[in-house]
C-alpha cells in the first residue's frame, strides 16, 4: 500500500469550494439555489460499508442517491475513524493501468440519480486510521456539500479482500 503525501486538507477544501463557486454559478443556477433544499437533505446512502483494516488506509462504499431536483456535489468527508479522508475516483493512467486518485471538484451526484461508490470505482478513502477497523463495528461519516450543508451516515465494517487499487496521489 502507498503512503499518501501530507497535504493541507483545509486549504484544499477551500480551493475546491472556490473553484466550484466560480465554475457553477450562473444567474439561473443562483435563482434555483435560492429555493432548492440544502444538498444534505436530498441525499441518502444505501448499502454503505467500510473495508476492515488493521492500520493505515481503508475505503468506504455505498450508493449515494440524490432525490432532489438539482445536482449536488460532495466536496469533503470526515469521520472520527481516520484523520484524513479523500474522495477518490478510479481512472486509467497513461499505461492503461487502473489507478485511484483524488477527484477534482468532488463527487457530483446528478439530480434524481445514484452515484455508486464501489471497489474498483469511486470511493471515500480513509487514511491514517485512528484505530483498527474491525468487522461488524459501525463507522459514522459526515459528508459536506458545495452548499456547506452536511449529511451524516453510519456504515458497518466488513472484511473484504479486494479494493486493493494502486493509489496515485499525483
Amino acid at each position: 500500500m502507498f503512503t499518501p503525501t501530507k497535504r493541507n486538507t483545509a486549504r484544499l477544501a477551500l480551493a475546491l469550494a472556490a473553484t466550484l463557486a466560480l465554475a457553477g454559478c450562473t444567474a439561473a443556477d443562483a435563482a434555483d439555489d435560492a429555493v432548492a433544499a440544502p444538498a444534505g437533505e436530498s441525499v441518502t446512502l444505501t448499502d454503505g460499508w467500510v473495508k476492515a483494516a488493521g492500520s493505515g488506509m481503508s475505503a468506504a462504499f455505498g450508493g449515494l442517491t440524490n432525490a432532489g431536483s438539482q445536482d449536488v456535489t460532495v466536496v469533503s468527508a470526515t469521520t472520527e475513524a481516520a484523520s484524513m479522508l479523500e474522495l477518490h475516483e478510479t481512472v486509467e493512467n497513461e499505461t492503461g493501468e487502473l489507478i485511484m486518485r483524488e477527484i477534482d471538484g468532488g463527487f457530483v451526484i446528478p439530480a434524481g440519480q445514484t452515484l455508486a461508490l464501489e471497489p474498483g470505482g469511486s470511493h471515500i478513502m480513509l487514511m491514517d486510521l485512528a484505530h483498527p477497523l474491525e468487522a461488524g463495528e459501525e463507522v459514522t461519516f459526515t459528508l459536506t456539500f458545495s452548499d456547506d450543508s452536511t449529511f451524516e451516515f453510519t456504515a458497518p465494517v466488513k472484511d473484504y479482500s479486494g479494493a486493493n487499487e494502486n493509489y496515485d496521489p499525483s
Binding site: 448499502d47 454503505g48 460499508w49 473495508k51 462504499f61 474491525e134 468487522a135 461488524g136 463495528e137 458497518p156 466488513k158 472484511d159 473484504y160
Partner: peptide, 22 residues
C-alpha cells in the same frame, strides 16, 4: 455481537434475493 450483526445482515439480504454488503 459484531459477528452476529454482520451475519444477520448477510442472511437478511441473501434470503430475500439481494447481494450481501461487499
Amino acid at each position: 455481537t459484531r459477528m452476529m450483526r454482520i451475519l444477520t445482515d448477510d442472511a437478511a439480504r441473501l434470503t430475500q434475493g439481494a447481494p450481501a454488503l461487499a
